[in-house]
Design a protein around this nucleic acid. Structure first.
Lengths: 131, 131
DNA sequence: ATAAGGCTTCCAGTAACTGGAAACTCAAGG
DNA sequence: CCTTGAGTTTCCAGTTACTGGAAGCCTTAT
């Protein structure tokens, strides 16, 4: 499939997809006319990249994560070690994200939604209490 | 407190803290000697920025999120509306992160951890199945 | 008094895109 | 068949969000 379709399916702009190829994150085939030709496997890599980038992993971390799935040469012990390190990071992110959500949810539920600017959360988070 | 202490407490490099001031994300006091003087409230903003940036929110999104807590002038209806939009985003991120974790966890538990490179997950995620 | 370490500003460099120009390819309409 | 418009190519320049380094001031410890 062409880059436009891969872009739709992955949620990444075509520009970004070409950039990822430049830095060696994937290597799609080329059709006879010179157009890039993406397989479903490429699209999966791209979706994975879209997701992990949007979750705050650096490109290099994404490269490492991708290698967990893609690199058949890598030894299982390696895969397991790297995956375990990343798991810790992911769990930390999950905890932070959950906390952020709870705060916002509390904000939504406790605010009047009218004109009065006296949300109960605001003071707590602005640091008043702890100062 | 000085920028070094604020850096320790927030987990952000001093460089980044100055940069955030440049782009108007906080406005610490200045001591008599010209040094920046951070309050606990500043540190909370910084910790909030550290967290939300590491979770994949752009600086502009962080600015918007910060305004939910900080801007006493903003009307409650506004706060509620913005918070609800961000909640949807956060829930999506949570779902994606959970999925990523489950995949990695499965990888860790099902791999032998020895030399044999035959993790059961690898094929599924590399796109073989769906191709 | 001097040395070390932290702070200041400023300017340049990096990471990860993003936009735009000029040219080629392809599918559809006249 | 020709054209027109949309999609693709490469290349080069610009943007965002930092990050590193130089040069100089401030502070504390010997």
């Amino acid at each position: 499939m062409n880059i436009g379709t891969a872009s739709e399916k992955s949620g990444l702009p075509a520009k970004t997809i070409r950039y990822y190829e430049d830095i060696g994150l994937l290597r799609p085939d080329r059709a006879g006319n010179g157009y890039r030709d993406y397989s479903m496997s490429d699209v999966h890599r791209l979706r994975f990249l879209q997701r992990s980038r949007s979750l705050g992993f650096s490109v290099e971390e994404c490269r490492q994560l991708l290698s967990l799935y893609g690199d058949k040469e890598r030894e299982s012990a390696d895969v397991k070690a790297i995956a375990e390190i990343k798991l810790v990071e992911i769990d930390r992110k999950l905890a932070e994200l959950t906390e952020l959500r709870n705060t916002l949810r509390h904000l939504v539920h406790n605010c009047h939604g009218d004109d009065r600017p006296d949300c109960p959360i605001i003071d707590g988070l602005s640091g008043k209490a702890t100062q």
